[in-house]
Design a protein around this nucleic acid. Structure first.
Lengths: 283, 283
DNA sequence: TTGCTCCTCACGTCACGTGAGGTGGC
DNA sequence: TTGCTCCTCACGTCACGTGAGGTGGC
């Protein structure tokens, strides 16, 4: 028989681990001295401990390990448990690979630009919005031209909402449907959330549900819209770096546009093609 | 300004997360109502939150995230932190890949054999032993022949130790130096640990240090040595399954060999070629 | 008597999730 | 008055690591 220390050395585990396995009833010692509380392990228990360690190393939680070594699960159930762990390990591996890619992209960015960049890109689902909107088509690219257009559109929208007595229920939203044809006119929309129960009747305003997007790339632009293109460029560079595909559909949420344009805060959102978790791993 | 719920929805994090980031001083709200304790966030804080989330997703712990967003680290330090996370992510990825391979090997084994197998293989470092030993060369393979040889060798060893007044300090150990030439004689050694301070003078006994092995594959054999080959076969199959390379050097530790051979417990150990952690990933 | 091994609490880990129980403004 | 949002504790997570403080046998 072996004392705790000897048995621990034998199996190359810590004494604390043996205590723990005793505490949770996973590997009670063959004998416990009633006087001193000393634990004594039988040589044969190394076999059970090995089974425990082998199953633990497959990723099974100790509660499941106990059921397996105590033979409370059938072969089929064991197979099911292992398949689950297989899927989990696979997922975690993919997640780690993506994390690693993100870290490396970040390091490359630091090496190349010599600084950390003002825009942090966050991937998250984009919520749907129930909005009132007015729109216009334009071939005028560039912020210098879009500024006045949106000024007019939002003015129109708010005036009309005011006329029909409807309160905005959220921040202003600009929507762009990027056409795939270069130089084709883009449709720009000025929208603002309104209450779902509100019934707006106006022939100048449309009420629509801007759909939710499962995955969007977002970043926060601070300051005047005159150089919002820096934010978009950050998003595009990020997409290129990470190999994400952009759906050519973007939104701007005006989180704060009171007072000085220098203090404005806008969230830029680009819809991404789905590529989330799940076994869709074609190259 | 945004209430907790609105800000949480905006960033797609939980309210609890915002509370937590407030608690640890990572993202205190722009304003806290002294009466009600209500938290109010400024639009501009979404930028900080995005930075936090981006860094967190790279694997940085929140304490380090705080230092980075509070600009308490230089660009070089940030680079160092990211390199560390890079290494970590790489390691975890490799670990998950190995775990996945183990799970899959186990599943294959279940499919093929239709049962779980009596031998669990555990990889662990093998300790060094300071032993007294006697040896012999033999061409007699097979357990039927080795049994009597070891019987004689261990008898000799114990008798001689007794004669010179030295106590065994551990279990009997059998050592094999597997020659690479088939049918060449193998050297078999019968050993037993003795105290380091003990000075043994006998021309029939050698005192040697059996070296430690960084990585060994081990399993527990129970019952008579007559069919210890089942244990070895399990080890060899395991090595084949997992692509491990065996160093052709093995040990048997007799953990319990009192009384009925049916209750004997032996640990079988095979030295493995190093292949542990570290960036040695050639195929 | 000095070492050595062993023991039992009990807190800490990391980033929140999850109730329990209660309050303030429309 | 009923909802809605918000609040503050405080425990739980998972498998141990790490002291603190003390005991029994050679």
């Amino acid at each position: 028989v072996f004392g705790t220390g000897a048995f621990a050395r034998l199996a190359q585990v810590s004494v604390r681990t043996l205590h723990h396995y005793d505490d949770i009833g996973l590997l009670p010692p063959a004998r416990v001295d009633p006087q001193t509380g000393y634990r004594w392990y039988a040589a044969e228990q190394l076999h059970r401990l090995n089974r425990i360690l082998a199953l633990r190393d497959l990723g099974l939680p100790l509660t499941e390990v106990r059921k397996v070594v105590d033979d409370e699960v059938s072969l089929g159930e064991l197979r099911g448990m292992l398949r689950l762990r297989q899927a989990e390990a696979h997922e975690r591996m993919a997640a780690e690979a993506e994390r690693l890619a993100r870290v490396e992209a970040r390091l490359r960015q630091i090496e190349m630009e010599g600084r950390v960049g003002d825009y942090d890109v966050v991937v998250k689902p984009l919520e749907s919005h129930h909005v009132a909107l007015v729109h216009e088509c334009t071939t005028s690219f560039g912020n210098a031209n879009l500024g006045p257009i949106f000024g007019r559109l939002f003015g129109e929208l708010y005036a009309e909402l005011d006329r029909v007595g409807v309160e905005p229920a959220g921040p202003m939203i600009a929507l762009y449907d990027d056409s795939e044809i270069a130089d084709a006119p883009i449709k720009v929309k000025a929208a603002v959330p309104v209450d779902e129960t509100e019934d707006v009747t106006s022939d100048r305003i449309e009420i629509v549900d801007v759909p939710a997007v499962p995955r969007g790339a977002t970043t926060v632009h601070r300051g005047s819209m005159a150089h919002v293109d820096e934010g978009y460029q950050a998003l595009f560079r990020w997409a290129e770096e990470t190999g994400e595909h952009i759906d050519g559909y973007s939104r701007e949420i005006y989180l704060d546009c009171d007072g000085d344009p220098q203090t404005w805060v806008t969230e830029l959102q680009l819809a991404l093609h789905e590529r989330g978790p799940g076994p869709k791993e074609e190259s």
